[in-house]
């Protein structure tokens, strides 16, 4: 498969994965064209996180194939470290390195794996931090930052490697409600700048706003996919309707 504009940047076909006897991913087919934003919705345990973690080979798949930028990532000869420079991921729990300052967190990978000099990496990192208004926190340790600030640093840390696709794994789920919007604003900005992104999210309003495509996962399968307008206003599957009704109910209570 070549990497011309017509092939999807991330392509998954018949992807299955088991944890023991549990079928966490069940014949997943998913195409993500360049500059598109795809949102994965679904209950906890439906396989959203595992799906994302397969794309950068944090998890292995048992069946099917995944290509990223035209390259088979299941190929045993693949250098995963090269793949991971192209595929950034941000986690629910931020996973910043607690023993390093913000600046060190952002510059570590560019310096050690990206071929940047120290000055080059720091210059780039400060620029990125300035963009998100956290340049003043460059020399602080992560535990001095709010959750929202930590998550924005985690996003910038992923961006510093110049990834071509960004995987966001429920990045606002661990945040206090008042801190969610600052993180979503940054993601919105990235979407507008044309970053290819796959988001696992519980923020339905946000998914509706930024997504080119929404996929509803249920028990490891993509049960339904479509435009945000279709999924959120006229879902075909009863399970999708049920899920959306439950989420809406929870949002009202909150």
């Amino acid at each position: 498969m070549s990497s011309n504009g017509s092939t999807p940047f991330v392509h998954m076909q018949g992807v299955s994965k088991w944890f023991g006897s549990l079928n966490v991913l069940d014949h997943i087919d998913l195409d993500v064209p360049e500059h598109n934003v795809v949102c994965l919705i679904g209950a906890s345990g439906s396989g959203k996180s595992t799906l994302l973690r397969c794309i950068n080979r944090l998890e292995r798949i048992e069946e099917g194939e995944i290509t990223v930028d035209g390259q088979q990532i299941t190929d045993p000869k693949l250098d995963v470290n090269v793949l991971r420079r192209k595929v950034g991921i941000v986690f629910q729990a931020y996973n910043l390195f607690p023993h390093m300052t913000v600046l060190q967190n952002v510059t570590l990978a560019p310096r050690k794996a990206g071929g940047f000099s120290r000055d080059g990496a720091e210059g780039q990192a400060r620029g990125l931090l300035r963009r998100i208004g956290l340049e003043a926190k460059a020399d602080e340790y992560p535990d001095r930052l709010s959750g929202g600030q930590q998550q924005r640093v985690a996003i910038v840390r992923a961006l510093a490697m110049g990834p071509k696709v960004l995987l966001l794994d429920e990045i606002t789920s661990a945040l206090d409600p008042q801190l969610v919007s600052e993180v979503l604003a940054l993601v919105r900005e990235l979407a507008e700048s044309g970053m290819t992104m796959i988001l696992a999210t519980h923020e339905m309003g946000f998914a509706r706003e930024v997504a080119d495509k929404v996929c509803f996962l249920d028990a490891g399968r993509i049960l339904e996919e479509g435009s945000p307008a279709q999924i959120f206003t006229e879902p075909r599957e009863p399970r999708t309707r049920e899920f959306l009704a439950r989420v809406l109910e929870a949002e009202k209570l909150a």
Binding site: V82, R84, G88, A93, N95, A109, K112
Partner: peptide, 19 residues
């Protein structure tokens, strides 16, 4: 999750241990 974060950034196993 610390290892996952480091490896996801493209650091090797040895770099992940070291840093």
């Amino acid at each position: 999750s610390q290892r996952a974060a480091a490896r996801s950034l493209g650091l090797t196993y040895a770099q992940t241990m070291r840093y």
